[in-house]
Each structure stands twice: as C-alpha cells, then as structure tokens.
C-alpha cells in the first residue's frame, strides 16, 4: 500500500469557509502555516495542539503508523466540526490539518489551531475540536509492529482493531 496512487490527482485536499480551514496532506505538517491560518488582530490567544505518533500501544512497541482517509467525507466532517466550534466559542479562526500515509514515530499526525479574543475559550475549543475529530472524522490509523502484522485502530473503544489479512 503506497502513500500515493493513481487517482490522487482528482482528490480533494483542503476546504475553507469563514474562519475555518481544514486540510489533509501526505507532507510533513507545518505548524507555522496552521497558526497563520487563524491569526487575527482581534485575537488575544492562539492555542495549538500537535498530536504526535507514540512508540507503543499499551506497552507494545509500534514501528510506525499509517493513516488513510475518505478525503471528501473527512474534509466535510472536519469543516462541520470547525464551524460548530468556531460559533460555540466565538473563535476568530480555527484550522485542522491531518497527515496521511506513513508517519514515523514522534512526528505530528494532526495539528489544530484556534484563535480567540481570550485564552480560556481557546483552550476549551482546542480540546473539543480534537475530541470531535477523533470520534467522527473519516480517517483511519494502522499501527505497524515489529515482526508481525499491523492492526487498524478504532478510537471508539480504545481497543485493538482488526487484524490485517495482508
């Protein structure tokens, strides 16, 4: 399973609307860009969350992670989440970018940046955005282990996912 296949040229990679920016990419995530998407003279705070890939699952060593997505639907869900959270917390901006393909251990797999007039709303909004993303967005993670087949994870129950047949 390669990172990029035929058909990706027709794929959608980003969407934006009224203070909300969402993206998917096979590249390294760019923290500066994620922050600049939400920068505003009316904001007194930007909170940035960077999710990084951990080297173990319940103590079992993980070699690397591989992410895949239903791009069109994932971006639509991400945008819906961002719009909800922007309105609920009176944010000035929110960006959510997820990396796809192979992500080596210790690198960022997701960035969420939010800006608001005051820091309290930004902290809360950042956490809510991440939790909503993890529970709903159509992105999947496969953990690759040393010397055995990988498993698809499910955020829902935190349990081991399905064993791969290939």
């Amino acid at each position: 399973m390669g990172d990029i296949k035929d058909g990706d040229a027709n794929e959608i990679w980003e969407m934006s609307e009224q203070g909300c920016y969402v993206g998917l990419t096979y590249d390294h995530l760019n923290i500066q860009e994620a922050m600049d998407k939400v920068r505003s003279p009316m904001a007194g705070a930007i909170v940035l969350f960077a999710g990084t890939t951990r080297d173990n699952f319940a103590g079992k060593p993980v070699k690397e992670l591989h992410y895949t997505a239903y791009n069109k639907l994932a971006l639509r869900s991400m945008l819906a989440i961002c719009k909800d959270i922007l309105n609920k917390h009176g944010l000035k901006g929110i960006s959510m970018i997820h990396r796809l393909g192979t992500v080596p251990i210790g690198e960022e797999s997701i960035l969420i940046a939010v800006s608001s007039p005051h820091r309290q709303a930004a902290w809360r909004a950042g956490e809510e955005a991440l939790e909503a993303c993890k529970s709903r967005v159509e992105v999947w993670k496969r953990e690759e282990f040393e010397g055995e087949e990988g498993v698809w994870r499910a955020n829902r129950d935190g349990a081991m996912g399905q064993k791969m047949d290939s």
Binding site: G51, Y70, L73, S109, E138, W140, N155, R156
Partner: peptide, 10 residues
Amino acid sequence: VAIIPPVSSG
C-alpha cells in the same frame, strides 16, 4: 457508496 469502519484519526 462507502463502507465506513470505526474511525481512528488523531
């Protein structure tokens, strides 16, 4: 049509 397994972003 798409089959959507339990998601695991983040």
